Computed example of a mutant assay.
Amino acid sequence: MSDEPLAIDIGPAPFPAPESTRRPVRCRLCGRPLTGAESRRTGLGPSCDAKLHPPGPDIRTRRHEVDQDTPPGT
């Protein structure tokens, strides 16, 4: 046996590449480049996602005062 190290080609690094070498992901609605992990996962930027998925109505905005008669006996 010799004491020389074995030459093994292991290929590219198994961990994710830095942001600069990643393939650019663009918003499916407006085409701008996406940078955030959540935006890259969904394929939509924050403003475009808000356009397609607006928040639900707040129940407090639907409340209104109603004129009522006084209950009998009070």
Rank of each mutant, 00 (worst) to 15 (best):
G31A: 10
S2I: 11
R60D: 13
E19L: 12
P57F: 05
P54S: 02
P46R: 00
R41P: 01
D67Y: 03
L34K: 10
R23G: 06
P14Y: 13
C48E: 09
P5V: 12
P16Y: 05
S20T: 07
T74R: 04
S47T: 06
T21Y: 14
R40L: 08
P46L: 01
F15I: 15
G73F: 15
I59W: 12
R60H: 03
A17S: 11
R28Y: 13
A50K: 11
D3A: 05
T42K: 07
L44W: 04
G43I: 02
M1E: 15
A13R: 13
L6Q: 04
R32S: 15
P12M: 02
D58I: 01
H64V: 01
E65C: 01
R60I: 01
P46G: 05
R26T: 09
R62L: 02
G45N: 02
R26L: 06
R22V: 08
R63I: 05
L34D: 02
L6D: 13
A13G: 06
I10A: 11
V25P: 11
L34N: 02
P57M: 04
P55R: 06
P72D: 12
R28F: 10
P55Q: 05
R40I: 06
P33D: 01
A50Q: 13
G73E: 11
H64M: 01
Q68P: 03
R63W: 00
R22M: 06
D69E: 12
P72A: 09
D3K: 09
P24M: 07
P24D: 04
E38H: 09
G43P: 00
T35N: 05
C48R: 00
L44I: 07
T35P: 09
P71I: 12
V25E: 01
V25S: 08
T74E: 13
A37E: 15
P24K: 01
L52G: 14
G43A: 00
G36D: 10
R26G: 11
H64S: 04
A37I: 06
A13N: 06
T70D: 01
P18S: 04
L29S: 05
P46I: 09
L29T: 07
T74P: 06
P16A: 06
E19Q: 13
R23V: 13
L29W: 02
L29D: 14
G56K: 14
G11M: 04
E4N: 07
D3I: 12
G43V: 04
M1S: 07
A13H: 15
F15E: 14
G43L: 05
P54K: 15
T70E: 11
